[in-house]
Amino acid sequence: MSPIKNNIVLVILLLLTGIPASAQDLLQILEEEQPEQLRYADATFKTTRITFGHSVESRKKGILEIFVANRFWDGPAQRSQSFFADRLSTRLALEYALSDRLSTGLGGTTWDGLFDGFLKYRLIRQSAGKEGASVSVTLFQNASYYSEGVSDPTIEDTFTDRLSFTTQALVASRVNRNFSLQLAPTFVHKGLSYYGEPSRNHFALGVGGRYKLGQHLSFVSEYYWLLNPADSPKTYGPFSIGVNWELGDVMLQFMLTNAVNMVEEAFITGTRNNFNFRSPNLNFGFNFVYVIHFRRNLRD
């Protein structure tokens, strides 16, 4: 072999060794090195409620929410001398996340005298990618105790008669970055209440949605369709439209609704007026949620 040929072979060999080292862009290499991670769709809703009803969302472990829900409405009288509104009902509650999936809460409402507690468990979380679940599912169970007197003196009641239960499977999907939709098949066991009607079981289907108007503001609406309403007194499905606004550790919810009550079985089965803008049908709702983090870790 001639020296020239030898040199050519050498050059070719050197080029071959050089090529794989420089052909790739550095960011391209990092792209390939990035491990695949399953990501959940965050913030299907920003708050644990859509308006009056629970959303699939729960808080992360160690978060306590101080939950103050208010409803303001007017009486049927034409003239009234009340300041701002004739009636006010407030539900004060503490809601705590025991884990990222399980949360619980205890509350009391002024106007209807209901004390309630609930457990909420995030069963399935929607994935943000193509693989994994396409919906989130959260199971909800509450119990409430009716603490007010009963109008009919002939009715004998016991502690268990005054308990009501609501069971829900909340199924929601974050359809796109702005729009989320939730369906809520619901079973209600309604205990004793003011009118003294016997306890009975109800089935209902809730529909709710949110549309993000901005980074911190979203439009929300919710409706519960009661499949077997009681004949007397006549009830209507609770409906609401409103906006949710988040401000750091504070969440504010504003809504217009026909539902006076704030505990699940009470507003699903006991809303006595249909939704319109007349008194006393129209309620203005204002929820204030303050979030306290008891767990502050820079690790997952």
Binding site: Q37, D42, V291, H293
Partner: peptide
């Protein structure tokens, strides 16, 4: 190269706000 979602905050809610808003 870093994934923004991999940032962990002292307050869990901040992570959601950071990524979302």
């Amino acid at each position: 190269s870093m994934l923004m979602h991999a940032f962990i905050f002292e307050k869990a809610l901040m992570r959601e706000h950071f990524n979302e808003s």
